[in-house]
């Protein structure tokens, strides 16, 4: 089945699933951040996850990356149960994440920031070329020797994306890649995401910005109270009365 047709995936159709989240629950004390979430991501698609604050989106990513463990349920990546794997093991299988708060290394230079993800897969002599290549891809050429904390917020956002694509992952998780960006910067971010997707990366994006999600033309899942609330193409989601209600808070 071709990835481009998978926007119309319907339940029961066997698709090429790269990520299969089964009934995942996460409790923090008495709070249920995730409450039996099940969700599938199809290989080579861009998949948007949206939901109101506290819906469990960022928790969901932490479960996927393995920086935290689910209370129950399981996560299958590429046909393999990765629920018990450590974060570094998942990274080596081809998962990569950009966290919501950028988590770049502020006191290091841009070159050094990219050196760290690159060095695991590249020899030291290849790194300078790879760094300039990646920086061109994220529209940040020539900033190698700048200290990261001296970059603008938008530049740091792109650097954070660059760091997570540096290892050429197969499944890229982006938590709010346009937070704090201007309209123009947001547009460029969408271009970057389309570009890495066209290279074959599956991309899961958490977002709030409706215009941005529309421009991604992606299959969209809505989370609410830690569960999958609705799923479909962006237009279907945008037209969904219940989704509007949870966003606008009307009953």
């Amino acid at each position: 089945m071709q990835a481009s047709t998978l926007e119309r995936v319907v339940p029961g159709v066997v698709a090429d699933v790269i990520l299969d989240v089964r009934n995942v629950t996460k409790h923090y004390g008495g709070i249920r951040a995730l409450d039996g979430l099940s969700l599938q991501v199809v290989r080579s698609e861009i998949h948007c996850v949206l939901g109101p604050n506290g819906a469990g989106k960022s928790t969901f990513f932490k479960m996927l990356m393995g920086t935290e463990r689910p209370t129950s349920g399981s996560i299958h990546y590429d046909g393999r149960d990765v629920t018990r794997l450590q974060a570094f093991e998942r990274a080596r299988l081809g998962l990569s994440v950009k966290f919501q708060n950028l988590r770049t290394f502020g006191d290091l230079t841009v070159f050094q920031n990219l050196f760290i993800p690159l060095r695991r897969t590249c020899g030291p002599s290849e790194i300078p070329d790879r760094v300039s290549e990646i920086l061109r891809q994220v529209r940040l050429p020539g900033v190698e020797n700048r200290l990261v904390r001296h970059l603008s917020h938008g530049q740091q956002q792109w650097l954070a994306i660059a760091m997570s694509v540096a290892s050429r992952p197969r499944l890229l998780l982006l938590d709010e890649p346009t937070a704090g960006l201007s309209a123009e910067e947001t547009e460029r971010t969408a271009e970057i995401i389309h570009e890495v997707n066209s290279e074959g990366m599956t991309v899961v994006v958490i977002e709030h910005d409706m215009g941005f999600i529309r421009s991604l033309k992606a299959r969209t899942s809505v989370l609410h109270y830690g569960r999958l609330f609705a799923q479909g193409s962006f237009d279907e989601i945008a037209a969904n009365e219940h989704v509007r209600q949870i966003y606008l808070g009307t009953e």
């Binding site: 920086t67 990274a91 988590r103 006191d107 760290i116 993800p117 290892s167």
Partner: peptide, 24 residues
């Protein structure tokens, strides 16, 4: 050396470093 880079990365943000595939 490369090892030094990874040390520094662990110092700055060990969890982030792990998500780049290093067994911190």
């Amino acid at each position: 050396s490369t090892y030094g880079y990874i040390l520094i990365a662990c110092r700055e943000d060990s969890e982030r470093t792990e998500t780049f595939g290093y067994d911190i």
